[in-house]
Design a protein around this nucleic acid. Structure first.
Lengths: 192, 192
DNA sequence: TTGATAAACGGAGGCACCCTCCGTATATAG
DNA sequence: CTATATACGGAGGGTGCCTCCGTTTATCAA
């Protein structure tokens, strides 16, 4: 018999895990098109599960959004690693920054995104800040090591600049501008 | 007989005008507490009119928000004039900037506010930019004339700085920080 | 294998909000 | 005072939110 103080736990059910993933996928999709206030019932429909299931996995809209956000941060981290492996330093950095723009864009106006982050748990903020900083550091250091990039810019500076570029943009057509600014910035990072 | 080409128009009905004002007042109140996505039916209730009346006056949520925003910009303009009349230059500027913080704060997180402005008609943007710039110019020039303020800061710079201060703030407790930053900035504007 | 049962599922139900439409009321003009 | 242009209110049909609970199913012990 197991000790009473520690409740015996079954292994989590396979369908539960699968549904959680389906929901996360669906949410990313729905939020991309409909913005952060899109219908949760639409998310459930898209995932092919009942609305109750959605609420069991993510009791609030924020919980769902947070999970989606975490997921995307993780993807960016992975991307950085892949780029660092396969692509030459400067181009790798450039592509990764572009991916940021795109990701934020799909989340339909990262103002909402960032706002949710700001309102959310500071644990989440810390998590993403740390992971993104690490990803940038990875890409940056390669360029510095190869002598192609200047060495006096910290990953934190770059991250903040990125956020600044997003924020400073007004409305609708911000994406091309942001991409251009990113390119200019990367050019500026080049060693003369 | 009036010319046929220009439709003869009656004077607008008194109740219509009154209801419009009641709605605007109610909306300011409701949006302050509930944020920009607050219920429009609540606005109508608060104003003591039917929901249909609200929609006749403001066909969309955005139209209502825009009207509220315009109204508030006008109020700020008036305040600037009053302060310029009654209060000594530096203090007048300080108070006016504080009023900006408060106004934006009541609109529940000016992120939403600014966002709506950004998405809205650029006519509205131009309107508010112009009026606010004019208000700042009024207050600034007095201080420069009296020799208390430095003369190398333009109204536009100040407005942008203000927006920057708002933007740079994270979540919940941004208001005290913003007020403090404004004070620091005003101090910095003082002639040494 | 085969129950027993903890765990997860789906969706009906109750409520709020959105927006439209139209019969009713009334301020204005003649 | 009447006619009517104008404005009013709110019912109605649709959607989304979230809870609750009867039903289904994956896991585990025998």
């Amino acid at each position: 018999m197991e000790p009473k103080t520690e409740k015996t736990r079954r292994k989590p059910r396979a369908d539960s895990i699968r549904n959680r993933e389906l929901l996360l996928e669906a949410a990313t999709q729905i939020f991309s098109t409909g913005g952060p206030q899109a219908s949760l019932e639409a998310v459930a429909r898209q995932a092919g599960v009942g609305i109750g299931t959605l609420y069991r996995h993510f009791p609030t809209r924020e919980a769902l959004f947070e999970a989606v956000y975490r997921h995307e941060v993780d993807q960016l981290t992975d991307l950085a690693e892949r780029l660092a492996k396969d692509i030459e330093p400067v181009e790798a950095l450039r592509r990764w920054l572009h991916a940021n723009v795109r990701l934020v864009a799909t989340k339909k106006g990262m103002i909402e995104g960032l706002q949710l982050v700001a309102h959310g748990s500071s644990e989440l903020k810390a998590y993403s800040f740390e992971r993104l900083t690490a990803a940038i550091a990875l890409l940056l250091e390669r360029g510095v090591a190869s002598g192609e990039l200047r060495s006096d810019i910290s990953p934190e500076d770059l991250l903040r600049t990125l956020v600044g570029i997003f924020y400073s943009q007004g409305a609708a057509e911000w994406q091309p501008t942001a991409l251009r600014l990113v390119d200019v910035f990367v050019d500026g990072l080049r060693r003369r």
